[in-house]
Structure formats: C-alpha cells, structure tokens
C-alpha cells in the first residue's frame, strides 16, 4: 500500500520534471507496415510480421525524454470506421502508405482525406510516411506523393511527409525526431494557444531515399533539423 503510494509520488515527480508524454495514432491501409514500424520504434528490430492486426495494438516507448504511447490500428476496411475514436485528442496522427502499392493509392487518399476532414481532429499535426521505399518501383519523390495524395488540399492540419523504409531503416531517425519534437511542442503549445493558422508543411527530401543521412525540412514553427 505504502510502496504503491511512494511509486505514484515518484512518477508524478518524474512527470513534472523530466518527462513529456505524447500519444500517437498510426493509421493506414492494411499491409502498409504500421505494426512493423511500431515494432521497429519500440524494439529497434525489424520483424517481417505478416499477421494482420485485428483491432489495435498499444505500445509505450521512451525516446529522448518523451514517452510515446502509440495506438497502432488495424488497417482492414472494417476497422477504418473506428479510427476516429482513437485519434481524438492525440498529439499527432501518423499515416503510413505502402509506396509501392499503386493500385490502392486512391483508397489510401480517400481514407486520409476522410479521417482528416473530421472536425474533432482539427489542428492535430499529421505525418505522412511513404513506407517501403526499398521496394523496386516505390514512389520516392516527395512532390509526387504530395500530388498523388492531395496533401496540399488539407488545410486544417499541419502536414509533413517523409519517404521511409522500415526494412532498411531509412529516415527512421528523422521520423522519430519529428515525433519527439511534436510531442514536446504540443505540450508547450497547449499552454500558449491553439494552432492559429495551420498551413501545409512538407519536408523536402534533398538526397535519394537510400542514403541514410537525409536532411528533411519541416515546418516553419520547428526549425529544420538535420541528423
């Protein structure tokens, strides 16, 4: 009983001084690589897991003083109606795309636009990840992705795009950095004011995706960071 109490006090102190918590929701069509990405972030290992997620996975990871709580939702059609419930009030939404699956680009675009058009999610920053850049024929050009998925038309959200490969760990570090930045920013921003003038922000990739030292630019509010 007492130790429990002590534990709680400790936790509270930790939260006060050291830690920021952020909640993330990871969306995308089935087989886009959501669960694989989450596993990669939390364990650092790439696992080629082919079991579809029925429902959702919940993961907690600590990265750079931020605790990430990740809701990894199933991408099958029957779960898509439930996405919104897990997006309300999160720090950021991550939308994962299979960059080599041309046939379903349209579906993915519609789902993305649909979920972002919900009023309840207004203002939540969105990170679009074009995964599987290692596959031959995968779309790696950021502009092409922006156009294909109509990202310029989204105006209630701050939107960023990376081309990544979970398998080869390309751009995973910048992705994490983006998440951590937004985690700390969200908590600090919440004391100030809501995002007043949300604008489109896309990160341009200067070097080919294969190179691990990509230097993406991000929003105006966060200065461009290089790793």
């Amino acid at each position: 009983m007492f130790s429990q109490l002590w534990q709680n006090i400790l936790e509270w102190l930790q939260n006060l001084f050291f830690q920021q918590e952020m909640e993330l929701t990871i969306l995308g069509l089935q087989n886009a690589g959501k669960t694989t990405l989450v596993n990669l972030i939390s364990t650092g290992d790439f696992t080629d897991d082919r079991i579809p997620t029925v429902g959702f996975n919940m993961r907690r990871v600590q990265k750079g003083g931020v605790t990430l709580k990740m809701w990894d939702l199933g991408g099958q059609a029957r779960f898509r109606t439930m996405w919104e419930r897990y997006c309300r009030g999160v720090s950021a939404v991550v939308f994962v795309i299979d960059a080599a699956d041309y046939d379903r680009f349209d579906t993915a675009r519609l789902e993305l636009q649909d979920i972002l058009s919900r009023r309840a999610l207004d203002g939540i920053p969105v990170l679009v990840l074009a995964n599987k850049s290692d596959l031959p024929g995968a779309v790696k050009d950021i502009d092409e992705i922006i156009n294909t998925f109509g990202l310029t038309e989204i105006n209630n959200h701050e939107v960023s795009v990376y081309s990544i490969s979970a398998k080869n760990r390309v751009n995973i570090d910048v992705t994490l950095q983006w998440l951590i930045d937004h985690g700390s920013k969200k908590t600090s921003a919440s004391t100030a004011a809501a995002v007043v003038n949300p604008a489109l922000h896309n990160s341009q990739q200067s070097t080919p995706a294969q190179s691990a030292s990509a230097a993406p630019t991000t929003s105006t509010e966060t200065p461009p960071s290089t790793s």
């Binding site: 029925v54 429902g55 996975n57 919940m58 199933g74 029957r78 779960f79 109606t81």
Partner: peptide, 8 residues
C-alpha cells in the same frame, strides 16, 4: 465493433 480488442 467489440472485435477491435482481439489483438490486445
């Protein structure tokens, strides 16, 4: 939609 907790 209780099926959502299957994975958990």
């Amino acid at each position: 939609e209780v099926i959502i907790v299957t994975n958990c």
